[in-house]
Design a protein around this nucleic acid. Structure first.
Length: 118
RNA sequence: CCAGACAGCCGGAUGGCCGCUGCCUGCCCCCUUGCGGGGGUGGGGAGAGGAAAGUCCGGGCUCCAGACGAAACGAUGCCGGAUAACGUCCGGCGAGGGCGACCUUAGGGAAAGUGCCACAGAAAACAAACCGCCUGCCCUUACAAAAGGGUCAGGUAAGGGUGAAAAGGUGCGGUAAGAGCGCACCGCGUUUUUGGUAACAAAAACGGCACGGAAAACCCCAUCGGGAGCAAGACCGCAUAGGAACCGCACGUUCCCUUGCAAAAGGGAGCGCCGUUCUUCGUCACGGCACGCAGGUUCGGGUUGGUUGCUUGAGGUGCUUGGCAACAGGCACCCUAGAUGAAUGGUCAUCCCUUAUCGCAAGAUAAGGACAAAACCCGGCUUAUAGGCUGUCUGGCCUU
RNA sequence: UGGGGCGUCGCCAAGCGGUAAGGCAGUGGAUUUUGAUUCCACCAUGCGGAGGUUCGAUCCCUCCCGCCCCAA
């Protein structure tokens, strides 16, 4: 729940590529999670990035924005408690994230984070 | 009440919990001489659209380019007005559609020129004779008349058939048969007059039909247009390097002045050459005529961070004045998103609406909530759009 | 942001004002004992969609839809 700032956001293209190159991921119905180790010296020990592409989600900007917001809501709420320290996460949205109930997404989120190790 | 036309508006509502991005602000800490900056933690307030879309036009703004003109290229195209501008809007005109309210309209020029009009048809554009009709001549029956005929000579655009289109239409006269050959009306053209700013309309006279379509075929005429775009542009930081290769250079000439004995040097003017603007050309302007600096092209290498531009603007709302209107003027009030792997939300509840099922009904349950999200900013156009509301008008039916 | 191009049968495609070539594939038949090859025949509710110009549009014009490429 509301904690002092313990997570930050990935913004650079090179950071996204580094996480993808680590090749560890978990696939669920609504999204895909990728994980990579994070430099321990950086002050927030967890960081995440979001991707909603035209190919995987929808060609409409409205749908892509909604998919990204649902993912961001999940990450902001549960990642500080469930995420591993010194890790970078990247979430890729899939088309079904627009229609799945929130409760299902929450269960998938917990399961995916439990399975992934650096 | 039904059907319809036009104009305008809305684009789910309220609340709880948890968040995001700017702005204002209280407190604490750190850096700084100071201005100020950074971090933490509270509070307040703001936060997608009518199309934000497609990127089809027009501008503002910014940078680049020495000025102007012509050609080329592109766009527009009835008339008048509005506007910063437009291919937009408003008001008219003409043409077409609808019983009507109203709607549609790329609508300059075809006697400046070139080209096109397939098939069919005799003929498709300085018209033309296939059938037919008529006259003459000739032949035959049977001398003439009449009828029939002809590898004959003419006349004829009334009739036939073809075609999208056949060279004014209808009627009367006229004729060998016909024909604007003549006349009346209609159409067309020219001229004049009247009304109108104009497009155009109306009337009169004359002409006697001359002028087919098509310019969304080329084209001509008129008007407009310099190019690129906020990834424009500016600043800071970082990094690399002070790279490599190649290209080009007119080495002019005449006169005058100054210094000098002279050689020569400096300055000025003319001609010539070279360079400088956007595809080309021209006129003018500016600069140059040097063995040394600068220039151009290509290759190689580095950065793809931050700040700014960035939201006060042809701005909104209300009242009012002018105008048929688009719109313009005046006064008052208001400040209403500024993100950049890109905020403006997630979730829950109640209500509203729609659909489905159950039910006589009240109602219950379930599913769902149109299109579509700013990316420098405006004015338009086009396209998408569930459901709903308001006003004016038209046609029909019923009742009084 | 700016610029350019393409949609024609299941596939590859020509045509670019006058009734839509051709090849591959498919279907049927002939040849063959059978198959391949070869030969013959058949195969497009109308050229991505909607309007307009024209007598007539795949072609010309306008607006949409889908796809691709280039520059920064």
């Amino acid at each position: 729940m509301p904690q002092p700032k313990t997570i930050s956001v990935l913004k650079k293209r090179s950071e996204f590529l580094a996480v993808a190159a680590h090749r560890k991921r978990w696939v669920s119905a609504g999204f895909i999670v990728q994980i990579a180790p994070r430099d321990g010296a950086l002050s927030p020990s967890i960081a995440y990035g979001l991707t909603a592409s035209k190919k995987m989600v929808s060609s409409l900007a409205v749908d892509r924005n909604r998919a990204r917001r649902r993912l961001r809501a999940l990450a902001q709420t549960f990642l500080p408690a469930l995420g591993l320290a010194h890790a970078n996460y990247v979430f890729l949205a899939k088309k079904d994230i627009l229609t799945l109930p929130y409760e299902t997404l929450r269960c998938d989120f917990e399961k995916a984070l439990g399975r992934l190790k650096v």
